[in-house]
Design a protein around this nucleic acid. Sequence first.
DNA 1: CCAAAAGTGTTGTGCCTACACCCATGG
DNA 2: CCATGGGTGTAGGCACAACACTTTTGG
Lengths: 233, 233
Amino acid sequence: MSTQNISQHIKVTVDAIVFGYNQEQGISVLLIKRKIEPYTLQWALPGGFVHDEETLEEAAERELKEEAGISINYLEQLFTFGKPDRDPRARIISVAYFGLVKSTDFSLFAATDAAEAQWFNIYELPQLAFDHAEILHKAIERLRAKITYEPIGFELLNRKFLFSDLEQLYMKLLGREIDRRNFKRKVMSLGLVVELNEKAPALAAGRPGKLYSFDKEKYQQLKIKGFDLDKLI
Amino acid sequence: MSTQNISQHIKVTVDAIVFGYNQEQGISVLLIKRKIEPYTLQWALPGGFVHDEETLEEAAERELKEEAGISINYLEQLFTFGKPDRDPRARIISVAYFGLVKSTDFSLFAATDAAEAQWFNIYELPQLAFDHAEILHKAIERLRAKITYEPIGFELLNRKFLFSDLEQLYMKLLGREIDRRNFKRKVMSLGLVVELNEKAPALAAGRPGKLYSFDKEKYQQLKIKGFDLDKLI
DNA sequence: CCAAAAGTGTTGTGCCTACACCCATGG
DNA sequence: CCATGGGTGTAGGCACAACACTTTTGG
């Protein structure tokens, strides 16, 4: 680093892209309605300035809690956006973080002021402030890539789920049909999903399915030692 | 973004991790010797403060030219490092960029003041300033991952090369033997490498090999439409 | 003629894909 | 009994891994 003490007028923000999933709404992303200039009343990703003594990830977690009332255990750094004119106020670079939440957190969230934070289906997005459309686009790409080599369902599904839930999550995200038999065989061969001895209550017509859940231990183990399983789909 | 005008004392730098390759030195990374506080005379990644009107990538390119005299066409963003205490002077976050250069650029580089910038084999690194060891570690991981799904040789080898050069590059990077016959078949099936009608001069004992080169057009095409070829190795 | 490196084919195995019918329940 | 969704097996093809001998040159 060449380190003359340059006077630099750059500020640093974080933005958080949080994806959620449930049966009705499909794959959604959390947005907030801006209450201040610029882009007042437009939808934007939750985020804000990094404080002097916190890490970037902590900043993203804090902003999520402040602006949307949700706590996320695990955020992954996505990309840093730094074009000089991406914010009309000043030179502001933004480090984007990426997270997944269970569908059970949806209801939790509905408790907060619905006008200021909301889930949007990723295929039906409003106009977004700043370069947030670009950021979100990149996040969706990453999500789609991730799902092919990591069992993402763990973060997105309820603790107990039907196999068809997992199928549908994958189909919605990939935007195409997948073969149920092949998919199940592959997923089960990973040993991450275990069959429970419970049947789901039959919600509609049709044969009720068994419940499944993720084997958290195995999941963590594999995540740590960096499982490079062949493409899942 | 919650956007009270917070007074923020964070500065932004970029650091560049440039990998090169040649037969003798193997896979190397470019480091510079710091001439100012802190960490004076220690080796560090080239980099420095982002200017107010340039993009992050431009900043990385500029610093590489200033500090090491090399021009790189393509840099890829690696990660942003932002722990509050990673720099003893102040809160400084660093956006790390990642690049590859041909071995022919090595000689070019030797022309500049050798004391201040140097290539180091990635398996024989000196102590590094700041958290640069961590940054470099992450870059090497990325390089290793990249090589399994992208034909990286294009950036690292000379325009014309022996097939054994490509083999050895992969073996050095992966740290294990690969089967020459299977490797060649796979690489050729991608259609990115073409056989030239030239023989290389025989440098040592042994049968001289044919020369090969990358088909730049096809390479660019595939890179653009995001080829998700199955794992190469 | 010997050492060193380049070049080259085949076979088996396992994984992936494609594909269709029966089962359990609610209405 | 019908509609709805859940559950399951198999056969063929393809890509990958394993494997060794011949050719060309320099010394």
